[in-house]
Design a protein around this nucleic acid. Structure first.
Lengths: 185, 185
DNA sequence: ACCTGAACACCGTTCAAGT
DNA sequence: ACCTGAACACCGTTCAAGT
């Protein structure tokens, strides 16, 4: 509040004429950000999974540009008009993919949870290499206690291309949706 | 800090003898919580997906008991000894499932991202019904603009059993892992 | 209508001083 | 070694007062 007031060149209390609360201000800010998620024009001729991928990539790009917003997406349900519109795009895509209607809301939550979770992890450093940390990741544990790490060994501490990983994840999720549609017959 | 000092019956600055920082204190607290994630005894005779499910359910139960901790799991990589041990369990399970070793780290991140994301969503209210919100969810949008919501209609506003949903999600993720193993041949 | 000043009830943290 | 008092530089928010 005080910092914002400074940037606007006004006293902190002047803000309270335009916004009820700090929480309300943040709500408004995420509302504005969510507008940027929607495709510019109604995307004709795109397959359902392309529309999902576009939304997912837009979400990740958004949190890359505004890391502070990442954890806010977990706080409240999608209540702003644009958030509801984004959910609707996912619903339509899943129906078109052949997912039974009773399963659509669950899969929407599964997908959005993963996408937001990935974006938040990236934005807040959960995917950062442990070696950057002074405590030294697994250095303090005897290697014999970590058979899994030993098995995966060579692939562990090389740099990760998070863009490629995100795309591989989305491909896996697409297959998950197709399997759900197949099960419905 | 001040509240904690009060509860301990001591002046705030006394804490700084035992902990460097507020951040260090929080790190220590999540470290303690993570110890509770690990299975009590080395679970013999359990299939790989049962060990994953146990870990996932433990994670969800943990954030139900300590909602404040949910968003902290996104902040830093798994650096405490117990966190590394938990990651190792997932690595071993995926290897046993037949996932190629080069794919194991990515799938571990996919799974943990979803599980933590689900737990955080639940803990911070993202899965709460929109009707609880005064702004009225999709009430402010003309129904014609939301073809997806219209299609899914009946299944939308009935109460969700998040435990059942979480289990269905884990089943989907298990199939995702099996598919990845199949692709490797 | 819109903004301001002063004040209230908070924070985390430092630093010299106590025992 | 361990704790305390006073102080510093912050917060979000209220409320009466200004124009």
């Amino acid at each position: 509040m005080r910092a914002l007031a400074d940037r606007v060149g006004v006293t902190p209390m002047a803000l309270y004429r335009h916004v009820a609360d700090k929480a309300a201000l943040l709500d408004g800010m995420v509302g504005r950000l969510l507008s940027g998620l929607l495709p510019a024009e109604a995307a004709g001729g795109q397959a359902w999974y392309q529309r999902l991928d576009a939304l997912a990539h837009a979400c990740r790009k958004l949190t890359q540009r505004h890391p502070w917003a990442a954890h806010l997406f977990f706080s409240r349900p999608a209540v702003t008009p644009d958030a509801v519109r984004a959910v609707d795009i996912v619903y339509l895509a899943l129906v078109e993919a052949g997912v039974p209607e009773s399963e659509v809301p669950r899969l929407e939550r599964l997908i959005s949870t993963f996408v937001i979770g990935f974006a938040a992890s990236e934005a807040s450093g959960r995917f950062a290499p442990g070696s950057m940390d002074p405590r030294g990741r697994r250095g303090q544990l005897p290697d014999g206690e970590l058979p899994g790490h030993r098995k995966v060994g060579p692939w562990l501490d090389l740099p990760v291309d998070l863009t490629a990983e995100f795309e591989a994840d989305l491909a896996d999720i697409r297959r998950l949706v197709e399997a759900a549609a197949r099960r419905a017959g």
